[in-house]
Simulated assay, not measured.
Amino acid sequence: MQTGYYAATAGMVAQFNRMDTIASNLANANTTGYKRDQLITGDFVRLFKEAQSELPIQNQTEAAAQYLNRSLSRVPQITDAYTDQSLGSMQQTGNTFDMALSKEGQFFAVSTPQGVRLTRDGTFTLSDQGKLVNKQGHEVLSTDYFQTKTAITLNPGDSIVTIDKNGQISTNVPGSNQMIANKKILVVEPQNIRMLMKEGDNLYVPDSTDPLTPLADSGSVMQGFTERSNVNAVNEMISLVEANRLVGMYQKAMDTQMNDMNRDAIEKIATTRR
Rank of each mutant, 00 (worst) to 15 (best):
A64I: 01
K135G: 12
L126W: 06
G4F: 02
S86W: 10
E50S: 07
Q257S: 15
Q58G: 02
I185T: 03
R274G: 11
A253M: 12
R274A: 06
F108S: 03
A100I: 04
E139N: 07
Y6R: 13
A100K: 05
T123C: 04
P214D: 05
S159H: 14
Q114H: 10
S111H: 08
A109L: 14
S73C: 10
G42K: 00
V187G: 00
S176M: 15
Q191K: 12
V188R: 07
V13N: 12
G224A: 08
G157V: 09
F44I: 12
Y250L: 01
A7H: 13
V187R: 10
F124G: 01
G248F: 01
L39T: 03
A29K: 07
T123L: 07
A10V: 03
N59L: 12
L101M: 10
T148R: 13
V221Q: 08
G200H: 13
V161A: 02
L72P: 00
Q129Y: 07
N25E: 09
Q58S: 13
A270P: 00
G248K: 09
N69M: 13
T112Q: 12
A270D: 05
L240W: 06
G33A: 03
L240F: 09
I169K: 04
S220P: 03
V13H: 03
P211D: 09
T148C: 06
T209P: 10
Q191L: 11
S73G: 15
E139D: 10
N155M: 10
T31I: 05
T9H: 05
R228A: 14
I57D: 12
V116C: 10
S24E: 08
R36H: 05
Q38E: 14
Q106S: 07
Q60P: 00
M179E: 09
D43Q: 14
K135M: 13
S53Q: 13
N172T: 03
V161P: 05
I269G: 11
A10N: 15
N235R: 13
S159E: 15
N232G: 08
Q60W: 07
G42L: 00
S89C: 01
N172Q: 07
K268R: 15
L101W: 03
H138C: 02
L186S: 09
E62H: 02
A181Q: 13
D255T: 15
M1V: 13
I180N: 14
Y250V: 01
I180M: 11
R228C: 04
S111N: 12
P174M: 01
R274D: 07
G42Y: 08
A243M: 07
L132D: 06
Y250E: 01
S127F: 03
E227H: 08
A270K: 04
P190C: 15
T213V: 13
I57H: 08
N69C: 00
S89L: 14
V188N: 10
N69L: 12
A270M: 06
Q92E: 13
R70W: 06
N202R: 06
M12Y: 06
S218F: 00
F44D: 10
S127P: 04
V241M: 15
G42A: 13
G224L: 02
T9L: 15
V161N: 06
N230G: 14
A265F: 09
I78C: 07
A29I: 05
D128Q: 14
Q257R: 04
A81H: 11
L215F: 05
Q168W: 15
P206K: 09
R70E: 02
K252P: 04
M254V: 08
E139Y: 01
N134L: 12
Q168Y: 12
N259V: 15
E227G: 10
A151Y: 01
Q223D: 14
V110G: 00
